[in-house]
Amino acid sequence: MRDLRLSLRASSGRSDPARLLFFALCFGFLALFLLLPLLVTFVEAFSRGVGVYLDSLADPDARSAIRLTLLVAAIAVPLNVVIGIAAAWLVARFEFRGRQLLVSLIDLPFSVSPVIAGLVYILLFGAQGYFGPWLKAHDIEIVFALPGIVLATLFVTFPFVARELIPHMQALGGSEEEAALMLGASGWRTFLHVSLPNVKWSLLYGVLLCNARAMGEFGAVSVVSGRIRGVTATLPLQVEILYNEYNTAAAFAVASLLAMLALLTLVLKSILEWRFADSIAAARGH
């Protein structure tokens, strides 16, 4: 068997032109679509020197965008964690009619365009939306303000946490929880001391992906935010604003921050996948 495998490999030796072509195509494609965009981002960001780069990031609008982005993620991610854990507990620990439908509905936001995710909140809370006049009369701002941005972010990140937890909790089964209850533990104690520690790495994995999307979301947020400089512009929107003003270096400086966030996410994600492969049920990207 081993010999045969070797011979198969040998038959496609290093000098084999078909093999070389295969490698060239694969690496060419990867370089074109992975390496080049990343490279361009950083080269353009520093194209006018480190000074301009740092100035661009120190700009009040840029700092306001950083603050807003962090704030939105700080609200949306914890909410998603609570909902995601509840949904996973529900789906993975109980059998009830409508369970499969519920899983499909939780996944639904993945198949909806981000622009539509923003649009739906305009239709509800915009000036001419269903609740628009009432909100205006009570002086409540949702659209073109923080609540709208948070809602749109929640929509696009809705499935992330539940999606990682459900398969993992299903694979674990409920016998450890049953054992805890038999030993006299309360429901909360069982959940906090047994269920949650068991899924902590897949929870972290879900949070990581959820956070990356929350901080980087563009389409949905762009629709609901109104893109008011220094007020409702998140980092991705700030990139657009600067780019459209032909302030390319500043645009790419802000973009490089987001690119670093993406790289950090990939590094942490890979560490989780390598170190805790068996405790992450769905070690696949989204």
């Binding site: 016998s175 450890e176 049953e178 054992a179 805890a180 209850l181 038999m182 006299g184 001391h193 047994v194 520690p197 068991n198």
Partner: peptide, 19 residues
């Protein structure tokens, strides 16, 4: 309640708390 029953239960695959 489960606590009041005071039953020692050994599960088929033991269900030890892994962590």
């Amino acid at each position: 309640s489960l606590r009041e029953r005071r039953i020692g239960f050994v599960f088929q695959h033991y269900a030890l708390f892994k962590h």
